[in-house]
Design a protein around this nucleic acid. Structure first.
Lengths: 168, 168
DNA sequence: ATTAATTTTCAATAAGTTTTGAAAATTCAA
DNA sequence: TTGAATTTTCAAAACTTATTGAAAATTAAT
């Protein structure tokens, strides 16, 4: 397979993959393009390579920056802004985990903790099932939360070295 | 907070939460409703409680069944079909992991393995960055894959007992 | 200060996804 | 069998989300 074809495949698949992970297709495609670009590139480069409008590039690069996955880079002597993605995949993964935990898991756990405090008779089947379900999810989520915190703080070699021992 | 209000909150939040995880809102809401129902319920019960059409209930319960999260239950003497959700949250989580791994991670790893075999000069910066990026993601994904396999096979008490030791 | 280059915004529109509801298919009791 | 109850299907409509593109804002060189 030739590079051009492989690049196109990678960008398109990474885009489709992103949609399963709560990231929109274009944002994931821009991310993919930046991941395989050895040097920083401009808005115009992205527009041209992905065939999308300036506004679209602008919005999605901004989101990528908010997610902490992409940086604006200033190149001396150049008027335009350049963009560059973090290439270390471990850092990319921990950054995504960190953001999603903050945006999704933490608020959910907060809500579940509230819902558990419902007033009602535990002998009533509906009440009991509600409390048990909410408590079960909250407990499980709490464990996941702790685990992800450690992962975020850990560094890759430590993590992989130990996780492999753990998982036989 | 009263049970009725708490239920509504839980269903609505679980629905919103689901959309971040590639599951559609209604499917997640039906799942939530089933999780807090002590006994199996019918299509009509779901239609009434969530204010959605029969077709919608039918499609989404079918998807939940495909995901292995919900079962059809036949109640002797009843003409209608009843639905019931797996209540053990550990089983729910491992089932979701199993399905998503099969649907998303495995095909992605297969593709990356292909893309790594690109023909081209490793001294060319673009080629080198492409291969490095793809290889990095493939390697990371491979570790995640192994880890999830162990998790899927493990049983909850074993897992939580050990993970706590591992994560200090 | 003026102007040209560049980036940002956002209303309009396009594309994609979900939901409805009624007709078709299926199931089961009599 | 027949027909009433129930489930399934799927085209059309409603809703949601993403994209465009041109105008406004910003930036930086002269």
């Amino acid at each position: 397979m030739k590079l051009t074809e492989a690049k196109a495949q990678f960008i398109s698949s990474w885009g489709a993959f992103g949609t399963h992970w709560g990231i929109n297709r274009t944002m994931a495609q821009i991310h993919a393009l930046l991941l395989i670009s050895p040097d920083p590139i401009t808005q115009d480069d992205i527009m041209e390579q992905l065939n999308i409008s300036r506004g679209n590039v602008n919005m999605n690069t901004r989101d990528l920056i908010d997610w902490g996955l992409v940086d604006r880079v200033l190149i001396p002597g150049e008027r335009k802004e350049f963009f560059s993605a973090e290439k270390d995949i471990w850092k990319v993964a921990t950054q995504i985990i960190k953001e999603r935990k903050k945006r999704e898991l933490d608020p959910m756990l907060k809500l579940l903790t509230q819902l558990e405090k419902i007033d009602g008779d535990k002998k009533d089947a509906a009440t009991k099932q509600f409390i048990d379900t909410v408590a079960g999810i909250r407990k499980f989520g709490g464990q996941a939360d702790k685990m992800l915190d450690v992962m975020i703080k850990a560094d890759e070699s430590w993590f992989l070295g130990n996780i492999l021992k753990f998982f036989k």
